[in-house]
Each structure stands twice: as structure tokens, then as C-alpha cells.
């Protein structure tokens, strides 16, 4: 088991409410301008991750998920919107607070192992140097390093340099590095993007274990829909906005067997915008103008050129959930 986290070497510069969500994004906009051409990577994205949650953010290339992670980690600045991570307003941080934010509030794991580990340091040194950067007292440092090294199963390879590790080992070492300062939120960007199937499962299990054991809020950004199987909630991003969310839980059927139940929800943003799944709009031929109708307990959407007709209801599925 993991020993309790030692107290912080230094208190955070500003008081943070303990019940604040792990991640709160509201109306997040990020526009890149290159050679006079504007590209909107985020278009009013809303996102809420509660403390202790393990969330996957899934989207196709160019959907804005990596931009979102950079904003959450304080490595990029949004053009507009609000961002809070563990109760800290990321946009309001000054330089010192930003450094402290990176040391203690968030931890990162990137896809490229070269970005996670210094190639000329061993696993143990990579972990220890990050603890040292954060100013962790020497007495506590050894414990913390052993703690995360053990947590990620790196004891046998702690003296190896990254070049002598497999891809999975490297990413587990990266997770250890990200965790050594006991962040409140762990942000990972395609952590399994360069791994084979077995290593992917190994790393995702490690992340889930960390989340479960440490209660560290974890956000996994990926384009791999298979990651969804390892997380409790999957947020899908499309065109710089959250489009759907899928919640997963275990249930018991009539025969007493455990079932993994996933429900997908459309996300209604604070402006009332809603993205309809393509399979729905395609099945009904919805395009361009649609008719909306307010029913006593739901909203009706129908083709704009036809009269209204009953919408088939699908039991307890809001928009198309299915049983597994």
C-alpha cells in the first residue's frame, strides 16, 4: 500500500477551496493565428471534472483535445473563457504561482517518452529531480520517490536510463515522475499513443490504479476510443466543443451477472447548444433546418420541411445508450 502523503514543504500561495472541482472549463476559446490565418482550436468548450474522477477526453485529430490539455497545464493561454484546475484560476496565476501550480497542482504525462523523461538520468533520478525541483526536503524525498516507484512497479528498473526501458516502462516511469509531488490533477496526453496493446493496457491500468489508490483526479486525452473501457467517464470533443459524454458503471442483471453499463449523453452547453450524434441525424435525414418542439418531458427535433411526428423512445437511453 502507499503510505500517506507527507505534508507539503511549502503551503500553496493562495487558499484553494477543497471542494472545488478538479477541472472546470467554461466557454473556453483558443484561436491560433499563423501567417494571418486564424484557426479556432477551441470554440467555447465547457468541461467539468470532479475531484477523484478518472476521465478520458476523446476526439479526432484537430478536435482541440491537446490544446485543451495545454491550457489546463498552464502551458498555453486561451483566447477567452474560464479555466480552473483544482480550484485555481489558471489565467490569474502570476509567474511564481504558475511555477507552484506546475510543481504541486498538476502532473503531466505526454505521448512522447522523450518529453517525459530526461534521457541522461535514471528512472530514480528522473523522479527525484522533480521532487527536488519542488523543494521537497531531503528527508521526505526518499520516501516519496520510493513511494511512487513502488506504486508504479518500477523497483527493478529504477537504476536504468530511459533508453533501456520498454515503451510501457517509460510511460509508467513518466507517471511516477508526474506523481512524485502529489499533484491534485494528473493530465495525460495520449499516454498510450506509441504503445502496443499489452503495454497500453499496462499503462492504463497503472493510471486507474493511481486514481483509485491516491484519489488523484486524472484526465486522459486520447484519440483511442478503447481507452474508454478503462475510465469512468468519457468526454468526446468535436470541433473544439464537448459533444457527448459517456458514463460507465457496473450493474447486475436479472441473473445476478455483473454488467458493464455505458450511457452516452449529449452535452448541453451553457448557451443551450447541443451536438446531435451523426448516426441520429443521418438516420432521420436531419440537416440544415430542423424543427424543435417542447413536449411536457422532452424536446422534439424533426426535419424542418416535414410536419411533426412522434419520436421513437428508447427506454432509459437518453440518446442511444446500450447494454453490454
Amino acid at each position: 500500500m502507499i503510505s500517506p502523503a507527507p505534508s507539503r514543504a511549502r503551503s500553496a500561495p493562495t487558499a484553494v477551496p477543497r471542494d472545488a472541482p478538479a477541472v472546470l472549463c467554461a466557454g473556453l476559446v483558443r484561436i491560433f493565428t499563423t501567417a494571418g490565418v486564424e484557426v479556432q482550436a477551441l470554440q467555447g468548450l465547457d468541461l467539468l471534472v470532479e475531484r477523484g474522477e478518472l476521465v478520458a477526453i476523446v476526439g479526432a485529430s484537430g478536435s482541440g483535445k491537446s490544446t485543451l490539455l495545454n491550457v489546463l497545464s498552464g502551458l498555453d493561454t486561451p483566447t477567452a473563457g474560464q479555466v480552473e484546475v483544482a480550484g485555481r484560476d489558471v489565467l490569474a496565476l502570476d509567474e511564481r504561482q504558475r511555477v507552484d501550480f506546475r510543481r504541486r497542482t498538476v502532473g503531466f504525462v505526454w505521448q512522447q517518452t522523450g518529453r517525459n523523461l530526461l534521457p541522461y538520468l535514471t528512472v530514480e533520478e528522473n523522479v527525484a529531480v522533480v521532487a527536488a525541483i519542488a523543494g521537497t526536503p531531503k528527508r521526505q524525498r526518499a520516501g516519496r520517490v520510493d513511494d511512487v516507484v513502488g506504486l508504479l512497479g518500477l523497483d527493478g528498473i529504477r537504476d536504468r536510463r530511459p533508453a533501456h526501458l520498454s515503451g510501457g516502462q517509460q510511460q509508467r516511469a513518466a507517471i511516477a515522475v508526474a506523481l512524485v509531488n502529489e499533484p491534485e490533477v494528473l493530465l495525460t496526453d495520449e499516454p498510450t499513443g506509441e504503445l502496443d496493446e499489452a503495454a497500453t493496457a499496462d499503462v492504463l491500468e497503472a493510471l486507474r490504479g493511481v486514481n483509485a489508490e491516491r484519489g488523484v483526479s486524472t484526465v486522459i486525452v486520447t484519440h483511442d476510443a478503447g481507452v474508454s473501457d478503462h475510465v469512468g467517464r468519457t468526454v468526446r470533443i468535436r470541433d473544439g466543443r464537448t459533444s457527448t459524454e459517456t458514463l460507465r458503471r457496473w450493474d447486475v442483471d436479472a441473473e445476478g451477472d455483473e454488467l458493464h453499463v455505458a450511457e452516452e449523453f449529449a452535452v448541453l452547453d451553457r448557451y443551450g447548444r447541443l451536438q446531435l450524434p451523426e448516426e441520429f441525424t443521418g438516420a432521420l435525414g436531419l440537416k440544415e433546418r430542423v424543427r424543435l418542439g417542447l413536449e411536457p418531458d422532452h424536446i422534439r427535433v424533426e426535419q424542418g420541411h416535414e410536419r411533426s411526428r412522434p419520436v421513437p423512445r428508447r427506454g432509459r437511453h437518453a440518446l442511444g445508450g446500450e447494454e453490454e
Binding site: M1, I2, S3, L121, T122, E124, E125, V127, A128, V129, A131, A132, K138, R141, A142, G143, V145, D146, D147, V148, V149, G150, L151, L152, G153, D155, G209, E213
Partner: peptide
């Protein structure tokens, strides 16, 4: 999860 087994103080490069 694997249990952590402290072995020695980690070497931190100055």
C-alpha cells in the same frame, strides 16, 4: 498495486 519498498535514499543530481 505493488507495494513500495524503500531501498535507499534516491540520488538527486545537483
Amino acid at each position: 498495486m505493488r507495494a513500495a519498498t524503500p531501498k535507499r535514499a534516491p540520488r538527486v543530481p545537483g
